[in-house]
Design a protein around this nucleic acid. Structure first.
Lengths: 279, 279
DNA sequence: TTCCGCCCGTGATGTCGGTCACGCCACTAA
DNA sequence: TTAGTGGCGTGACCGACATCACGGGCGGAA
């Protein structure tokens, strides 16, 4: 061990609940933006036109005319931790453009078992498939971190897409990516021989999208999920996740320090995939 | 038992391999269509403009100008059973519009385990997510029934979408539906407590899209998959599928006659979902 | 015809992991 | 301080299912 503390002791374990303030522009000059403060400690971005993230994000980065129109039909709104944007089975009211915060997308069976399909990041459009096809929301969207999610009613959104072909293409792109992540999720659930393999796949996936520095073989990333939630992602029980975490730590595949996850060697974890048993 | 024969005896068990001839127009007047015969017993639809399915299908049913343009960039081609349209991991060459036949979409792990994600039906556009996003095909497309699949190269397809906003919307719609089916697949794999539950979910899903008459509680449908393939869909072993089939037949939940599947009561099967144990 | 390959049926065996049942720690609210 | 809550750690148990190993029936090819 390298002096790294256990997850369970001495450190505040969860940053999930802590408010994450939207980082401001790098140059620090924020006073020109139409900004106000919401009950949940969030900074509200009033207008998409001035959104500091406009350039980086798939759906926001559109020609000025389109963004203007988009802005007109969008209602900004904020949601506290624990809120629910929409529920599986509801008929689609419209989409939410996630500006800040994080959302958990899940589905639940009749007996209460939950499958977490995806954690949604800022810049994504939530409820897109259902809104496009008109069929009910297939997932439930719960707020994990206080969130600004701007709502666009279904009809207005569809009209907007009809008028702006580029936007429709963007929508198709995001749907494609969403599908991609769904397939990769199916792979981890469906192709693994053991829970350990599933967890390894999950950790690698997680790090490839949350790593602080992706170039090296060693990876560090924030783990903002509880064991329970991880279990619900990979389709296992909370207890096995806990046990596997201990095992991985024992086998030097993993270190946990507070909410920071360290994978000393990505390659070592990858070796674990599809290795039925070292005999 | 109602005199229904066992799957294993006396009947030709698989129609999968049998050629399915594309049904002609109801009125029988086919001689006006630009039709020719391919090596595999298939009827080729040379031009989308005259495609007999144009009205029913999501992507084909577009304004004349769009269909014309589409027709210009499309290369019709046929593929025998066992052929592979594209392989997981290849960079996307373009899309295939599936005119007739059936395609198996699957993903495989390093050790050879296979997960069948979906069976694709005529009218769908294959390779769409990868072609739109530019990332590699996430699945492998294998021909199960001799197939006509018209190819459109990626660049031409993207340009086409840029010029025809309606088409982009259709693409988004199909992506939404594809995503929907992926989620439902994840539900059957991820939320079930037992293999029996998974199989029941699969059968219900299958019947809801292949039933001959959906109004009644009793359902009949063609089962064109082998036990092995069903196993690969629901993430179980071939043997358990076989055993579960026997069990379901014993419990009167299911009858199999040749390749025809009969579910006497859909409700009875549904009772099986999320019922941990009848105690 | 014979042979081979593909599918389905079935028993025996071992084991992974779900479930139950605890206990411990950290944090919060009263 | 105490009680309550939410998350993690661990042991014991045992059942569902993967795996291995065969056998048998059918169809297609030689």
């Amino acid at each position: 061990m390298t002096g790294i503390e256990e997850w369970s002791s001495s450190m505040p374990r969860r940053t999930v609940g802590g408010f994450r303030i939207v980082p401001r522009g790098k140059n620090g000059s924020t006073h020109e933006r139409p900004v106000m403060h919401a009950p949940y400690g969030l900074e509200i971005i009033e207008s998409c036109l001035r959104c500091p993230h406009r350039q980086e994000r798939l759906f926001c980065n559109l020609p000025p005319a389109a963004v203007q129109r988009l802005s007109a039909i969008t209602s900004p709104s904020t949601h506290p931790k624990g809120a629910t944007l929409f529920v599986e089975g509801q008929s689609p009211r419209g989409v939410y453009i996630l500006c800040s915060g994080r959302i958990k997308l899940s589905t639940t069976s009749a007996d209460g078992k939950t499958l977490i399909v995806r954690m949604s990041e800022p810049g994504e459009v939530l409820g897109l498939p259902a809104t496009i096809t008109g069929s009910p929301y297939e997932l439930t969207a719960d707020v994990v971190e206080p969130t600004q999610a701007n709502f666009i009613p279904r009809n207005e959104f569809l009209n907007f897409l009809r008028d702006h072909g580029e936007a429709a293409l963007r929508v198709a792109q995001q749907l494609g990516e969403t599908y991609h992540s769904a397939v990769s999720e199916m792979r981890t659930i469906g192709l693994s021989h053991s829970a350990g393999e599933k967890l390894a796949r999950f950790l690698l996936d997680w790090c490839s999208s949350n790593a602080t520095d992706k170039s090296k073989d060693e990876v560090r990333a924030h783990m903002t999920l509880t064991h329970e939630e991880i279990a619900q992602v990979i389709g296992a029980s909370r207890e096995t996740v806990t046990r596997l975490f201990s095992e991985f730590k024992r086998r030097q595949l993993l270190q946990v320090s507070g909410s920071v996850l360290v994978i000393p060697s990505r390659a070592a974890l990858e070796n674990l995939l599809n290795a039925p048993e070292p005999r």
